[in-house]
């Protein structure tokens, strides 16, 4: 069971309060009807499925009920950061160097 920091509650809390909600930063197009079949297919189904830092969404479903974004390493299962929905993608390089620092302190 992981610990997840909710960017709205500003608390680090047990995973049991949260629900995973898929890859992050996939924006529903303004006018879906204008999209080609291929573009719409990609929006619906094509996901990055990364091994390593993954931008993803969670919902604090048994808490403040907000959807938010996170960067989680799919290999170590560690969260590099969480941030509010609508905020821009954080810079991965600086997240990784910060994480590396805290690892080496162990």
């Amino acid at each position: 069971m992981l610990l997840i920091r909710c960017p709205y509650c500003e608390e680090t809390l047990p995973e049991m309060e949260f629900t995973y909600a898929g890859e992050a930063h996939i924006v529903r197009p303004e006018n879906p009807s204008d999209m080609s079949d291929e573009a719409w297919r990609d929006f619906l189904f094509i996901r990055s499925n990364v091994k390593g830092p993954h931008f993803e969404r969670w919902r604090h479903s048994h808490g403040c009920a907000r959807f938010f974004n996170a960067v989680r390493d799919t290999v170590s299962d560690r969260f590099l950061t969480t941030y509010k929905a609508g905020e821009p993608r954080p810079d991965l390089a600086s997240l990784l160097s910060a994480a590396g620092q805290s690892e080496s302190e162990k």
């Binding site: 047990p14 049991m16 309060e17 479903s61 048994h62 808490g63 403040c64 009920a65």
Partner: peptide, 22 residues
Amino acid sequence: CPRDLDKLPVGEARRTVFDGAT
């Protein structure tokens, strides 16, 4: 309840989970 209750101050409240129920 999986929360650390020592971190819930008197006079506050939280929505959380207890044995599967919100």
